[in-house]
């Protein structure tokens, strides 16, 4: 039977800067979101108290992968099922994820960072700022060198864009430097990181980025940003073959 306690969830919520940094990891299926989380855990679990929430569409496979990777106490990795709507659960109805974040923060208090992995969706899925304080969008070189140029809200305006699996670049004919340059341009200078779990330097840069965001969060200087439902883009027409006007959809 449920207990008849009198605290309400809304009442119990501390100020954002006084609770764990909630860091979202979004990106298309297969780009290495779980693997990136494993890398963050490996790099930071000695110095930070971490928790992980995975959003899976069909199963708890991502949670099982992370548990078997042995990078964190299995109890600190929690799956939630997003059913048929993985993008809904991280954007328009974040209830289940918020409850899971509050639970894990309470059960392992105090936590420094809660990593929330989205269910692999498409290029348009991003987290609501009501759920995460900051978000990483993950692409991989195997998805093709032109993906970064095509843009999208996550590519354009996530707090960090990761171009993952750079070690595969020679095998898939992608020029990593060009892809990073394209991404940097699409993001108007926002952070881009070329990552490979086998390249220690890149993992170290990822680690440093997380620590920097955490420091800003704790100082109350970090303001969660919504990447938006769509990135600004232009429509080409007959009179303006190179693009008539640039706009964003509200």
């Amino acid at each position: 039977m449920p207990e008849t306690a009198t605290t309400s969830p809304a009442e119990a919520a501390p100020a954002a800067k006084d609770r764990a940094l909630r860091l979202g990891i979004a990106g298309p299926v297969g780009t290495g979101k779980s693997s990136l989380i494993a890398s963050v855990c490996r790099a930071l679990s000695e110095e930070l108290r971490l928790g992980v929430i995975t959003n899976d569409i069909y199963t708890d496979e991502d949670a099982r992968f992370l548990r078997s990777a042995g990078v964190l106490d299995p109890e600190r990795i929690r799956p939630i099922e997003t059913g048929a709507c993985p993008h809904t659960a991280i954007r328009d109805d974040v209830t289940a994820n918020l409850m899971a974040a509050e639970d894990i923060e309470r059960d392992f208090a105090p936590l420094d960072v809660v990593l929330i992995e989205s269910g692999g969706d498409n290029l348009t899925a991003t987290f609501s700022p009501a759920l995460v304080d900051a978000q990483i969008f993950v692409l991989d070189v195997a998805g093709g060198g032109d993906v970064a140029r095509k843009g999208g809200p996550g590519i354009g305006r996530a707090d960090l864009l990761v171009v993952n699996k750079t070690d595969l670049a020679p095998h898939v004919g992608v020029d990593v430097e060009q892809m990073v340059a394209d991404a940097t341009e699409a993001r108007e200078g926002r952070a881009v990181l070329a990552l490979s779990r086998t390249d220690e330097g890149s993992v170290s840069a990822l680690r440093q980025w997380v620590l920097t965001v955490l420091a800003a969060h704790r100082a109350g200087e970090h303001i969660p940003q919504d990447p938006g439902p769509m990135a600004p883009h232009f429509h080409a027409d007959e009179d303006h073959p190179d693009g008539g006007y640039v706009h964003s959809h509200a």
Binding site: A5, S8, M99
Partner: peptide, 22 residues
């Protein structure tokens, strides 16, 4: 729990909702 979470945000002063468990 999800519905209660929403309801207590909508009506933070509702005594009736505060009587419910977690």
């Amino acid at each position: 729990r999800g519905l209660l979470r929403l309801a207590t945000s909508l009506w933070p002063d509702a005594a009736i909702l505060r009587q419910l468990g977690t």
